[in-house]
């Protein structure tokens, strides 16, 4: 049985709780970004680009059974780390679970600055786009 969205968020909060300065946190985030597998070139299409990011970010979604599976990539490694966490939390869940997910972990791990509208790295746009995919799949 897979973890719930809430359980994964709790895991992330615990992992980030181990770091006491920002540099350790960002090194971990960079590491997550480097470890996220590259998105196959065929999915790096104009259609999959998330608008509103300073670096290019691609997000691909697929429905497997009743679950949605996300894959993503970015030119910027910190953004890739952020999206890697979002994938860990949201991928392999049903459209309904994804749509109603409250992503409180972002604030709890001290990354809410990346959620602000003005941040051109577009974490907000990524979350929106993931929820949009869920909405689109649930309508099908």
């Amino acid at each position: 049985m897979a973890q719930s969205i809430q359980e994964t968020q709790e895991d992330l909060i615990e992992e980030f709780g181990l770091f006491d300065d920002w540099a350790d946190k960002y090194e971990y985030l960079i590491d997550l970004g480097k470890k996220l597998p590259n998105l196959p070139e065929v999915f790096k299409t104009e259609e999959n680009v998330i608008k509103g990011c300073q670096s290019r970010v691609w997000l691909h979604a697929d429905k497997q059974g009743d679950q949605i599976v996300f894959e993503a990539d970015s030119e910027a490694v910190i953004v890739k780390g952020l999206i890697s966490m979002l994938i860990r939390v949201l991928s392999n869940h049903t459209a309904e679970e994804i749509m109603k997910a409250d992503l409180y972990f972002i604030d709890q791990i001290g990354m809410s600055q990346h959620l602000a509208q003005t941040r051109s790295n577009g974490l907000l746009s990524m979350v929106k786009q993931m929820k949009n995919y869920a909405l689109a799949f649930s309508a099908k």
Binding site: A23, Y26, Q54, S55, V77, I78, V79, N121
Partner: peptide, 20 residues
């Protein structure tokens, strides 16, 4: 290295530059 990554980290050091 993508400029955006440097911009994010330098901000953590209290340094304001522009990237993009």
């Amino acid at each position: 290295i993508h400029p955006q990554d440097l911009g994010v980290l330098l901000d953590k050091f209290g340094i304001a530059i522009r990237t993009g």
